[in-house]
């Protein structure tokens, strides 16, 4: 298998064949990321396409100091964020004070990490989340961005980022509970 370094060099020289090789190697992983950030597979494919065009145009500026895969993932995430800005609708951001109030009324309910919910269901739940929730949740949980970084990238306040994350978790918990109950019921019955 051709090394990434050779592929990068060939792509830098404009080789479409090398870029095809790059696409073949990384498109599945990157489409997985795009899927997490999008409403549906069509939007994910649009992000993937746009992201790969950016990668092709910027590959000459990649300096082999960090992870190439990491560099491509960041481009995909930034492309997804651009989509988010384009599609931004009027969204009601719940203030953090409201959240604290709600939080105090909530009982801590643990969710088993091994909960019997398959990947497809979880993906569907994530994709159906409100866009603001989805982006903050993805960036915070999967990409490890801080609230300050999320706020900067999404153009919202830090408090809004925190609020969105809280709401996202609430949303997910609510959506997952039925599957857990069903699983428990199945275990009892069977």
């Amino acid at each position: 298998m051709v090394s990434d370094q050779k592929i990068i060099e060939a792509c830098g020289k404009g080789s479409r064949k090398a870029f095809r090789e790059l696409y073949r190697k990384y498109a599945p992983v990157l489409l997985g990321i795009c899927t997490r950030y999008s409403n549906d597979i069509n939007e994910a494919e649009d992000i993937l396409q746009e992201g790969f065009i950016k990668i092709y145009n910027k590959i000459g500026s990649f300096r082999s100091e960090g992870s190439f895969e990491g560099w491509m993932k960041r481009i995909m995430i930034n492309t997804a964020i651009n989509h988010y800005h384009k599609n931004l609708k009027h969204q009601r951001y719940v203030e953090i004070s409201e959240i604290h109030e709600q939080l105090s009324n909530e009982k801590d309910r643990e969710i088993d990490p091994e909960l019997p919910v398959n990947k497809e269901i979880i993906l569907a739940i994530v994709q159906n989340m409100p866009e603001g929730y989805r982006f903050v949740f993805n960036m915070f949980v999967f990409e490890g961005y801080s609230h300050a970084e999320i706020a900067d990238k999404l153009g919202v306040s830090v408090n809004t980022s925190k609020t969105q994350l809280f709401k996202a978790r609430q949303y997910l918990r609510k959506k997952i509970q039925p599957y857990i109950k069903e699983s428990v019921q199945n275990n009892i019955n069977g």
Binding site: T35, A44, L48, D112, K119, I122, I176
Partner: peptide, 16 residues
């Protein structure tokens, strides 16, 4: 909650 989702998507790939 975070861990559940991280685990589920750790090696998530989709064939374009």
């Amino acid at each position: 909650m975070d861990e559940v989702f991280r685990n589920r998507f750790q090696s998530f790939e989709a064939q374009p």
